[in-house]
């Protein structure tokens, strides 16, 4: 038992909200954030997806069990559970697809530094590495191998232009403030500042919003 466990025990919100409900909230949050953020966010830590997977498995088993007895009374409950299950699966699917789309778009960028690599889950990392290898191989066999050796790289940075395309961190996002905080933003002509109140909704550049989101002062919407 470490300090986190003790703190959790005295946290009044800990026992009132069951784990499943909080997992669903976390998943929904991660899904909304991932879909609005221009760059890939961190893979949720703490075994969220393991728990969600287990839950889905359990519900599928339950559905199978309930289909077994054709009692009309359980039929309604069955439809409710199946609907909920479909929605749950949709959330996970949409979340994973949003991430894969971003990874595919800027594969080399996300593989280039350890910090960026750590954002991917193990499976995503394996997928991205393999995908990049396939692409490189494809280029090589299609035309690149007939090039002079100095031109065969895919990650040249000569002439101050990097061949590695990166996501646009300056694109705009909407955020909702979760507590009163100072919102700073860099503008084209001059920088702006405002005292944000809780539940204010602001639009600003992702590069400015990122810090607020990471510290938990705001969430993407």
């Amino acid at each position: 038992m470490d300090i986190d466990d003790i703190l959790r025990e005295v946290d009044p919100t800990f026992h009132s909200v069951p784990q499943e409900t909080r997992d669903l909230q976390d998943l929904t949050r991660a899904w909304v954030a991932e879909r609005s953020a221009p760059e890939l966010l961190h893979w949720p830590a703490g075994g969220l997806f393991e728990r969600i997977n287990d839950n889905i498995k359990r519900q599928i088993e339950k559905v199978e069990e309930m289909t077994g007895d054709m009692d009309p009374k359980t039929n309604f409950a069955l439809i409710v559970i199946q609907t909920e299950l479909e929605r749950f699966k949709y959330l996970v699917r949409s979340y994973l697809r949003a991430r894969i789309a971003k990874i595919d778009r800027h594969t080399l960028h996300y593989l280039s530094t350890d910090e960026l690599r750590s954002r991917l889950s193990e499976m995503e990392l394996a997928y991205a590495t393999r995908h990049q290898a396939l692409l490189h191989n494809h280029y090589l066999s299609s035309f690149l191998s007939s090039f002079p050796p100095v031109l065969q790289n895919l990650n040249d940075t000569a002439g101050n232009i990097s061949m590695i395309d990166a996501p646009d961190l300056e694109s705009a996002v909407f955020i909702r403030l979760l507590k009163d905080t100072l919102v700073e933003s860099r503008g084209v002509d001059n920088d702006g500042e405002m005292d944000g109140r809780e539940s204010d909704i602001v639009i600003l550049r992702w590069s400015d919003a990122k810090r607020l989101v990471e510290t938990g002062c705001a969430e993407l919407i």
Partner: peptide, 19 residues
């Protein structure tokens, strides 16, 4: 197929329209 196989219950290539 290998990536999908790790998410057997989800069907990753399923519809992206909310059900």
């Amino acid at each position: 197929a290998a990536y999908k196989g790790q998410w057997t219950d989800i069907d990753l290539t399923g519809s992206l329209e909310p059900p």
